[in-house]
Amino acid sequence: MAKGEETRQFIIEKAAPIFNTKGIAATAMSDIMEATKLSKGSMYVHFENKEVLAWAAVDHNMKVLGDRLLSEISKAKTAKEELFTYISFFSNAINPPLTGGCPLLNFGTEADDTNPIVKEKINKGCNANQQLLASSINKGIANGEFKPDWNADDFATVMFAMMEGGHLISRMSGNNEKMKVITKTLKSMIEEKCL
């Protein structure tokens, strides 16, 4: 990796948790300069403006989250374990897998009416998560773990929405009590579809 690319990546890695915690609008370039110890001129050599850096930070947060999730899911031996691993991975909203919480929820809430580029990035992430869940269900149907009449796409949408909603409720209340209810309910719904 060339020196310029190393510096650019360093800035993104330092900026990503700040954007994910404070949001795009509330993050100032001075916050990033403080975290990186780089001058304003150095920042603008690598990023045209804060918005371009924010886009890169969103991509970075999504990639890190996705890589960690897929690494955990790859350890599962069955389709049911894959679904339970997904639930477990996101079950602690107070101590989330990424600093600042779920980037899908954070950036999605902020960008839905204000930033079409970030909105599209988050929409793709939401769709990818639902496709991942549906794929696990379809695999489980194919290998005889789950009932053949289970609608994978519908359940993936419900599960994803419940987990994201659980994150919001938990982060607002400052505890995981409601998330525990959601994870217990989802696991019970999955068990009902097992053969």
Rank of each mutant, 00 (worst) to 15 (best):
residue 142 A to L: 15
residue 56 A to Q: 07
residue 193 K to D: 05
residue 108 G to E: 00
residue 6 E to K: 13
residue 9 Q to S: 15
residue 12 I to R: 01
residue 31 D to Y: 07
residue 42 S to I: 10
residue 65 L to G: 04
residue 167 H to K: 12
residue 122 I to Q: 01
residue 24 I to T: 09
residue 31 D to T: 11
residue 34 E to F: 07
residue 149 D to L: 15
residue 147 K to N: 10
residue 100 G to M: 02
residue 190 I to C: 02
residue 34 E to S: 12
residue 190 I to W: 06
residue 188 S to G: 11
residue 29 M to A: 14
residue 10 F to C: 04
residue 105 L to Q: 10
residue 29 M to T: 15
residue 141 I to H: 05
residue 10 F to Q: 08
residue 26 A to N: 13
residue 89 F to D: 12
residue 18 I to S: 07
residue 61 N to T: 00
residue 28 A to P: 07
residue 131 Q to P: 04
residue 158 V to Q: 03
residue 134 A to V: 02
residue 124 K to P: 01
residue 13 E to V: 05
residue 63 K to N: 13
residue 134 A to D: 02
residue 77 K to R: 03
residue 112 D to T: 09
residue 127 N to S: 12
residue 150 W to G: 04
residue 7 T to C: 12
residue 75 K to Y: 13
residue 185 T to Q: 06
residue 23 G to K: 00
residue 18 I to M: 01
residue 101 G to N: 04
residue 76 A to T: 06
residue 189 M to G: 05
residue 81 E to G: 03
residue 106 N to Y: 03
residue 185 T to I: 07
residue 23 G to M: 02
residue 78 T to G: 01
residue 74 S to D: 11
residue 68 R to V: 08
residue 46 H to W: 09
residue 136 S to E: 11
residue 51 E to I: 10
residue 15 A to P: 03
residue 26 A to L: 12
residue 184 K to A: 00
